[in-house]
Design a protein around this nucleic acid. Structure first.
Length: 215
DNA sequence: ATCCCGAGGG
DNA sequence: CCCTCTGGAT
């Protein structure tokens, strides 16, 4: 278990490293962000950001997406992978938001999860970034990996358990930005295959680094 | 062969 | 818990 002091030190160092905690999916419209996150499943944000300009130019409104031809949407998003499921989900979710949610992105976990293609990760990201709810933990691949290495979780890969365990130790007002910084750190330093521990300033508090030193 | 800010179904 | 869906980069 990490002490309160260690947790705070990790948070402070992350703030120093990544002051802005920016989301790398820059979309002003909530539904554009929602679909960008859907497209980001098993795909880099960089690639998502390559296909969305043409997609959102072809379908400039939520209503346009709701009426879009699924196979045409597939051609726009093909390179992001899982393109059949993603295209079907986007059109169906757009329809649902137009017909049942007054053309808006819902602001509760329960309603977000009813949208096709929206799971806990996407829902949490919307709750945090669009609606600024406190205590939001976005347990994506980077967050799960790095918090496991740091020793902030017990090492489980189950996103729900990671959410619960992180909510125990992170201040509610900090948790969302913390998760964004996990993504930034996961790309720059704490990569999945070859983590750059020698250049990682979180090493004093990291279980992974401590273990590798003892061995 | 492994990973990328997953989701749905069995 | 498991599996499948899919393309692109390393």
């Amino acid at each position: 278990m990490k002490s309160k002091m260690e947790i705070q030190s990790i948070i402070e160092e992350l703030k120093r490293l990544y002051p802005d905690a920016l989301c790398s999916l820059p979309y002003p419209k909530p539904y554009e962000l929602l679909f960008a996150v859907r497209l980001a499943a098993q795909c880099t944000d960089e690639r998502v950001n390559m296909v969305t300009p043409a997609l959102y130019a072809r379908y400039p409104t939520l209503e346009a997406l709701a009426e879009a031809d699924v196979s045409e949407v597939e051609t726009y998003i093909h390179s992001t992978g899982f393109f059949r499921a993603k295209a079907k989900d986007i059109v169906a979710a757009a329809k649902m938001m137009v017909e049942q949610y007054d053309g808006k992105v819902p602001d509760t976990m329960e309603e977000l999860l009813k949208l096709p293609g929206v799971g806990r990760k996407t829902a949490n990201l919307i709750l945090g970034d669009v609606y600024h709810k406190p205590g939001v933990v976005v347990a994506d691949t980077h967050c799960i990996r790095i918090t496991g290495r740091l020793g902030l979780t017990d090492g489980t890969k189950d996103p729900v358990k990671v959410e619960q365990q992180l909510r125990q130790v992170l201040p509610p007002e900090e948790s969302n930005d913390f998760c964004h910084r996990m993504v930034l750190h996961g790309r720059a330093v704490c990569m999945a295959r070859k983590p750059d521990c020698p250049n990682c300033t979180l090493r004093p508090w990291c279980s992974l680094f401590t273990q590798s030193q003892e061995a």
